[in-house]
Design a protein around this nucleic acid. Structure first.
Lengths: 190, 190
DNA sequence: AGACGAGTTCACAGATCAGTATACCTTCGA
DNA sequence: TCGAAGGTATACTGATCTGTGAACTCGTCT
């Protein structure tokens, strides 16, 4: 990716996320990134593909944050809840909800490249939860993973409400893990 | 509301929800509702106010569905989970997620009339959960209500995923209610 | 020297957008 | 009978939208 290309994606990220995709024109993105509209089209070909690049870049950053939170955990049981801790960090700078849900709201066409990226993002988290649950010894990792995903997305969606939704969902997630995974030691009575 | 006004709101609901608010022009709404653009502006004054009317109408329909589900319950413990049953019915015809979350994604301006309607809708459900939890004898209704709201919104947000998120969140909600409300005789079915 | 890729400048096409102006028609109650 | 209200028909404004065309500059590598 060329330097101009990176600046374009950075400007697109800020504008698309905060103002909405349809509401932001390519002229504004070009101006904000100090680049000509011609260059924008030479790099990305169309606005739709720029939208896809924006979501892909956001997904990349978010996944690396989650991965880091998971890897920093000492026990497998802690690791299962790590994405919720990552969400706390992530939410500080992103108060407009989930960029992928928001993108799907504006782009109904299933053929749009943004659709696959958004769906993949949710599925990646679901499968991560499932792997972590299995690694922690949960007898039914698929069910727990689905529940954790619901809690995660619910906390994200209710972000702007005057209720401690992230705290409550994290606490509940921790309780779910505790309930189906034997606590730290491996010598719990079976 | 005049007959033409009702047709306009009905057409706006279908188009705004399925295609996005910014992506749908007033000309299309006027055409779909068999009405002149002049009439549309005589009734609603601006597109923004039509958007508010669309969300208000949707909110009204949804609340009456939830109210009916709650009122149909026999025990207070069942009533707490009734909104999840209502969500199952509601989801059948609304596969594009939450109209209010989607609207907020497209309309970042907090001064937009849609903002208050969307926020009120979520707060109404939160307070409903709290009232029902208190009526069922839950010792900490605020905490339970927040958790139930997270589960509800999470189920809505993960709707398009190939995972039984609504079933899992309903089951979990039921377990939460059962755990904090003393079972009253025949509620302890298993 | 020469080719090439990245980026610039700027005009322009064609469509669509929200919203308005003007004039006319119909129904219904006072 | 009359006048107001609801609605129709059509043309229009001015702005904004995505996307393109063509010629130009500049640095880098061979």
């Amino acid at each position: 990716m060329t330097p101009a290309g990176r600046r374009i994606v950075a400007a697109a990220e800020e504008l698309f996320y905060n103002r909405g995709i349809t509401a932001v024109g390519v002229d504004l993105i070009a101006e904000r990134s100090g680049v000509t509209k011609r260059t924008l089209y030479n790099r990305f070909g169309s606005k739709d593909q720029l939208v896809a690049a924006y979501l892909a870049e956001r997904d990349r950053r978010w996944r690396s944050l989650v991965r880091a939170a998971v890897d920093a955990c000492e026990s497998p049981a802690e690791a299962v809840v790590a994405p919720f801790e990552a969400l706390r960090t992530w939410s500080e700078g992103n108060t407009r909800g989930c960029a992928f849900i928001n993108a799907l709201a504006e782009l109904p066409d299933p053929a749009h490249p943004a659709h696959r990226i958004a769906a993949d993002q949710k599925l990646w988290l679901l499968h991560l939860f499932e792997e972590l649950a299995a690694a922690a010894g949960c007898p039914e990792p698929a069910s727990l993973a689905t529940r954790l995903l619901v809690l995660h997305e619910g906390a994200l969606a209710t972000q702007p409400l005057p209720a401690p939704t992230l705290t409550e969902s994290t606490d509940l997630a921790r309780a779910l893990v505790r309930a189906c995974v034997p606590p730290t030691g491996r010598d719990r009575a079976e």
